[in-house]
Design a protein around this nucleic acid. Structure first.
Length: 828
RNA sequence: GCCGCGGUAGCCCAACUGGUAGAGGCGCUGCACUCAGAAUGCAGAGGGUGCGGGUUCGAAUCCCGCCCGCGGCACCA
């Protein structure tokens, strides 16, 4: 190689082009009349102190390729980036290092931004936002007020997941196996005053509207999380009392099989059911189950426990006396907190009956025959035929359900009811680093008191008042000490001058709980469309210009948390008339996790973490981008292989060496491709475009490698072909492509060029090599016109000498000919 | 236990949704270049698709039954 020829040097060209792109503001999103739009969104990151890991660029590269591709296809593309910067980890980190969360957050954002920029992503940085920005907080609080106005944000004294180690309450979704999702600290149930969002009011729509979305299996996860189930509520009269016990069941058809009742330890009527002689035991049981952490309850789930209350319910149809038990396998927070025990046809009821010696009655039989339950080792939970059930006898389970429901409703004993597994969303956190909830309460001063900051007082939590819109945002007070405390009011309660204020001579107290991290991410996609708007959360023009999000890429760990909450808020905004689509995210894709080289999850403790900065330094951003796309399908979990990056880097080196010095007429005769190479070029243009649209980036990279290998056969690549190649490569390796493009004399960015056209006629070969099978085994090959008739095929086959031994003396039973595919001769 | 996804060459992965199992990359072997090595270039070898049945002219692709891996849910009545 001649020494004047510079080598491919990403460390040099990548920063150069990144700076140029930024100076030229190439990727700022603007709408042009008549052009189609695409809103391509990444889940914005939480800027942790650890910086970017190689998992981040996977999804980000995918969306960047799609964005760059669509721009070349004439779309106006909105591709923004921002920071989900409130939340526990920032605060934990700040506590550990003794710095203010605002400072650590700013530092982390700077690191993330530098790293993202080093990868050449075509974000519109002019729209950058952070959930912690004062202006952003203002609109998050504004949205909370919308929820409050509509009765969707309310206070409740709830048994909540209190995590002492984190000093906060957690949502159900943040508790895993009885421990906190963050940090795995123990979580216990405590009743506390909490702000709660009425997401259950939207359960039906959240479930229903999933059907129209282009989403992966996440749809099923959300459906399951919402957990809609249809059944009946039935009232049981209590013997010797005016009380009634209401239960929920999905199997009204098994009502005649109920042999006992169970209420949850939290059930409001429990104390009424407790007879004098059993009272002590019952209260002890309630005490015990309340103090058991979720973890204990799950760990001990095998053995069912319970205590008889001493009271009896009367069967609404037979009048039979059914003992009422209390047991912690019944959840206070689901349905009515009480069940009828049908041990013959429910696995849990069966276990309970066996453990406590209660009778088991068969009321559903597989074939309608009567069976004895004495020898049963498990309940019969499937569908069958009703037996021992009077007017239901002989009916199949679905009909029996309907018949019983009709009967209950007619007699006024019960009603049809839909239940959801989904609970309302506990929305307050007892932490510092979050959005203040824009609510305040009247303060009643004790006799002789004049200042609640120093005197005894009562805060009237029952009279919440919304902060008026023009007073937003409510800012976080500066706090020296923002540590969480034992006090569930949280650290903000210590900022007395912030908390208490006077208006018209009266004292008021601000809400001191803050919002959870999910609040900011619930609506950030809406702020990106109009991030600088000071008059409104966003303008209608901006909404019409960009919404909905066409492609949303992020980790599957957000399948039920963020993605459900955001859909909920979006539907509330829909009801407010602020948005016009029922759903915000049309297409959703989860990138698969990237494992360490040893096939284990990347973590500091395993010592298998790959830092993207190191890869960029050694191999270049383009190599990293292409490798991450080449590893395998976007959604697959796959191990990192540094050798794989080396392979991709070699490919880029080859492309450079082959194309960087191409000129119009390098030496006399013009360079030319063969017919086959020309066809391959057109096929590759077609394939790469289709693969990008289908998000099959791995096969697109592969196709370009094949093309490069083929072009390498030529002493000189024609400039026209080189330009086509550079353009299809550019979404993947934008820096290298840009450099090549300019070396060939262009003055305008390659990202402004149109995507190359291909000639469909050249993507289909006329002659195809076909295998000839005899009885399914390949016995010969032959080149045939793609559209040859069967007669032509037959004639060609009989000219093939290698087939003669396989056909001689045999009778042809069948001649299978699929044009362009296969010839199979069945003989016998 | 339930739901979902997935098992193709030593490794990462392709295979037009039934049609010659192999595109690409890594690794390996050999050759060229070199005093030698690195880098580079060229040429090769390698599996019958997790297991067992079935449907079909033909199965990695479809059906049934298992095994293994990953993710989610886990007393939701």
């Amino acid at each position: 190689m001649s020494t004047e020829r510079p080598k491919y040097d990403p460390a040099n060209i990548e920063p150069f082009w990144q700076t140029r792109w930024e100076e030229q503001r190439l990727f700022e999103a603007r709408r042009h009349p008549g052009k189609p739009k695409a809103y391509i969104l990444d889940m914005f990151p939480y800027p942790s102190g650890a910086g970017l890991h190689v998992g981040h660029p996977e999804g980000y590269t995918a969306t960047d390729i799609v964005s760059r591709y669509l721009r070349m296809r004439g779309y106006d593309v909105l591709h923004p980036m921002g920071w989900d910067a409130f939340g526990l980890p920032a605060e934990q980190h700040a506590l550990e290092t003794g710095t203010h969360p605002a400072d650590t957050t700013a530092k982390n954002v700077a690191t993330f931004k530098r790293q993202l920029k080093s990868l050449g992503f075509s974000y519109d940085w002019s729209r950058e936002l952070s959930t912690t920005d004062t202006e952003y907080v203002r609109w998050t609080q504004w949205l909370f007020l919308k929820l409050f106005e509509r009765g969707l944000a309310y206070q409740a004294e709830l048994p909540v997941n209190w995590c002492a180690a984190l000093g906060t309450v957690l949502a159900n979704e943040e508790v895993i196996d009885g421990k906190s999702e963050r940090g795995s600290h123990p979580v216990v149930r405590l009743p506390l005053r909490q702000w709660t969002l009425r997401i259950t009011a939207y359960a039906d729509r959240l479930a229903q509207d999933l059907s129209g979305l282009d989403w992966p299996e996440t749809r099923e996860k959300q459906l399951h999380w919402i957990g809609r189930s249809e059944g009946a509520e039935v009232d049981f009269v209590i013997e010797g009392s005016a009380d009634r016990l209401r239960i929920f069941t999905t199997r009204p058809d098994t009502l005649f099989g109920a042999t006992y009742m169970v209420v949850a330890p939290e059930h409001p009527l429990l104390e009424r059911f407790a007879t004098a002689e059993r009272r002590a035991e019952i209260l002890a049981y309630r005490e015990a189950s309340a103090s058991r952490s979720e973890l204990d309850r799950t760990a001990l789930s095998k053995a069912k426990t319970g205590v008889f209350t001493g009271s009896y319910a009367l069967h609404p149809l037979t009048g039979a006396r059914l003992p009422i038990w209390v047991a912690d396998f019944v959840l206070g927070s689901y349905g009515t907190g009480a069940i009828m025990g049908v041990p013959g046809h429910d696995a849990r009821d069966f276990e309970f009956a066996r453990a406590l010696g209660l009778p088991v009655v068969e009321v559903v039989s597989a074939d309608g025959a009567l069976n004895e339950t004495g020898t049963w080792t498990e309940a019969f939970v499937g569908d069958g035929v009703a037996v021992r059930s009077r007017f239901l006898d002989g009916l199949r389970t679905p009909e029996a359900k309907a018949a019983m429901l009709a009967h209950l409703e007619r007699e006024g004993l019960g009603a049809r009811r839909v239940q959801y597994r989904l609970r309302d969303w506990v929305f307050s956190r007892q932490r510092y680093w979050g959005e203040p909830i824009p609510i305040y309460f009247p303060v009643e001063l004790a006799e002789g008191s004049s200042d609640p900051r120093i005197h005894p007082h009562t805060i009237r939590y029952d009279q919440p008042l919304p902060v008026s819109e023009d007073e937003l945002p409510v800012r976080l007070p500066e706090l020296e000490d923002f540590k969480p405390s034992e006090d569930p009011a949280g650290p903000l309660a210590r900022a007395l001058d912030w908390r208490f204020f006077q208006r018209d001579g009266k004292w008021y107290a601000r809400e001191t709980n803050t919002m959870p991290q999910w609040a900011g991410s619930c609506w950030y996609y809406l702020r990106f469309i109009d991030p600088k708007n000071t008059q409104a959360i966003f303008s209608q023009e901006a909404y019409d210009a960009w919404m909905p999000v066409d492609l949303y890429v992020g980790g599957s760990e957000h399948a039920v948390l963020h993605l459900l909450y955001a859909r909920f808020w979006h539907k509330v905004l829909f009801d407010c008339g602020l948005v016009t689509h029922a759903e915000p995210f049309k297409k959703l894709v989860h990138q698969g996790m990237i494992l360490g080289e040893n096939n284990e999850k990347m973590s500091k403790s395993r010592g298998n973490v790959v830092n993207p900065d190191d890869i960029v330094r050694q191999f270049g951003a383009d190599a990293l981008r292409m490798y991450e796309m080449f590893m395998g399908p976007l959604e697959a979990v796959k191990p990192w292989q540094t050798n794989g990056v080396i392979g991709v880097r070699r490919f880029l080196d080859r492309v450079w060496n082959m194309l960087a010095f191409v000129t119009e007429d390098a030496g006399g005769s013009p360079a030319e491709l063969t017919e086959d190479a020309r066809r391959l070029l057109h096929k590759t243009v077609k394939k790469v475009g289709e693969d990008i649209e289908a998000l099959r980036f791995n096969t697109a990279v592969s196709a370009m490698m094949i093309l490069a290998n083929a072009l390498a056969e030529f002493p000189r690549v024609p400039l026209e072909a080189a330009k086509v190649f550079a353009r299809i490569l550019s979404p993947f390796a934008p820096h290298l492509s840009e450099e090549l493009w300019h070396r060939w004399g262009a003055s305008e960015s390659i990202s402004l060029q149109p995507w190359p056209e291909y000639d469909p006629a050249l993507t289909v070969d006329e002659l195809v090599e076909m295998a000839i099978q005899v009885n399914g085994k390949v016995r010969g090959k032959l080149r045939l016109k793609r559209d040859a008739t069967e007669a032509e095929a037959r004639e060609a086959v009989h000219r093939e000498p290698e087939l003669i031994p396989h056909l001689a003396g045999k009778t042809e039973r069948r001649f299978v000919y699929v044009p362009g595919r296969i010839i199979n001769i069945v003989v016998g």
